[in-house]
Every structure is written in structure tokens, then in C-alpha cells.
Nucleic acid binder design. Structure first.
Length: 202
DNA sequence: TATACGATCACCT
DNA sequence: GGTGATCGTATAC
């Protein structure tokens, strides 16, 4: 298995969002691997995309989006959930791919423990471990300490080549949770998922 | 300094 | 189907 290099990410964001499907997202904590297959992504592309955090220009928060590809962009939403993105395109062009869902592969018990908020509470069902952008960051122990992380180092968080998803099995549609965006951006089919996969978000 | 709100989720009816 | 949780960030005053 091979770690995805910067040249994988330094391409058209729609291409990266499509090709990230099937790749393996790997987290390492205290020498233990936690991983999953990416089954759902969304593209956020540049200053012209009113749903993209960079559309209002450079700020301290979105600064990493303007930088090198293959870095992470992690931010907090609704005061409780962390979103995990990977920077794409050339340096200076702000764009990223949001990881919306993965299918658990390694470290399922660790994911269970991170997802269970309190002891004395029933375990989260396998199907609900990582089928949403806030759920998967919780399951992988991803928080703002992993913001601006270079994923080409092969430490803490990175991607490995997984399986190739054929075009016939890829579905596209509008992105989720961006009602505030301009209409042409709301309807843009920049969400990608694996057809029929049970771990795609609801 | 103050205020409004979001690339969500869990729990309720 | 609806709603409350909860806080960093952006924007306005």
C-alpha cells in the first residue's frame, strides 16, 4: 500500500473528490491504526464558490486553504463537530475536499470507544460509526490539533491507495447543508458517493 | 465589546 | 418531521 502524495491532491478539485472515493483514510494513535474506506466526498472550489469558506477572502481560519495541497483543513461547526478536509489545487488557489463518510476497516473497537460519549451507554451501531462528517472525525479522534497537518508525512493522519471505484458505481448530486449559498452553487453536483454503499450519510 | 450563525447530530414526537 | 446543543469566527457597532 502506498501513501498518496502531494501530486494526487494538486489537481482539479472535482477530480480529487471523485478519485478519493475508495481510498483509505488512515489515523494512527499511540501506534494503533484506525482506518476506513472513503465512500462520500464534497468539493469546495475557490473564491467564486459561495459555499466555500474561502469565498470571502483570506482569513486566519481559512488560511490553509490557500496553501499547499495535501494539507488538512479541520474546523469546528455548530460548536461541537469537527469537519475534515484535504486541500487541493495549486498553491494560492483555495479549494478543498470534505470527507463526508467512510466505511470502517481497522480499529473498529477504538472507533466505538471514541463515539460512545459516556460509559453506561449502549454502543453506537456499526452502521452509524462513520456515516457522516461529524461522526467520522469523532470516530477517528480528529480535532483542531490536526488542522494544517501535512498528510504526506505518513504520520498521525494520511491516505493510502485503496480500491478503484468504477464510474458506473459513482453518483453525484448537490452538496449538503449549504442553504445559505447562491442558487447556482447550491445545485452544483459537487457531492460524490459510492452507489449503494451503506455508510453514505443520510 | 456584542451579536448572529453554521459544510451536524441525537433525540424527541 | 422538528428542535436544542454549543462555541469559534466573522461582522457589526
Amino acid at each position: 500500500m502506498t501513501i498518496l502524495k502531494r501530486d494526487f491532491f494538486a489537481r482539479s478539485t472535482l477530480t480529487v473528490a471523485r478519485e478519493l472515493l475508495g481510498q483509505h483514510l488512515v489515523r494512527e494513535i499511540d501506534g494503533q491504526r484506525i482506518s476506513g474506506k472513503i465512500v462520500e466526498t464534497e468539493a469546495y472550489i475557490g473564491l467564486e464558490d459561495s459555499a466555500c469558506h474561502a469565498s470571502k477572502g483570506l482569513t486566519p481560519r481559512n488560511e490553509v486553504m490557500f496553501g499547499l495541497a495535501a494539507y488538512t483543513y479541520v474546523y469546528l461547526i455548530y460548536g461541537m463537530y469537527h469537519m475534515l478536509n484535504f486541500i487541493t489545487e495549486q498553491e494560492g488557489f483555495p479549494a478543498a475536499v470534505l470527507i463526508r463518510a467512510i466505511e470502517p476497516l481497522e480499529g473498529v473497537e477504538t472507533m466505538q470507544s471514541y463515539r460512545r460519549r459516556r460509559a453506561n451507554r449502549p454502543a453506537v451501531k456499526h452502521i452509524n460509526l462513520t456515516n457522516g462528517p461529524g461522526k467520522l472525525t469523532q470516530a477517528l479522534g480528529v480535532n483542531q490539533r490536526l488542522n494544517k497537518w501535512d498528510t504526506t508525512t505518513g504520520q498521525r493522519l494520511w491516505l493510502e491507495t485503496g480500491e478503484t471505484i468504477p464510474d458506473a458505481t459513482v453518483v453525484t448530486g448537490p452538496r449538503i447543508g449549504i442553504d445559505y449559498a447562491a442558487s447556482q452553487d447550491r445545485i452544483a453536483p459537487w457531492r460524490f458517493w459510492v452507489k449503494g454503499n451503506r455508510f453514505v450519510s443520510k
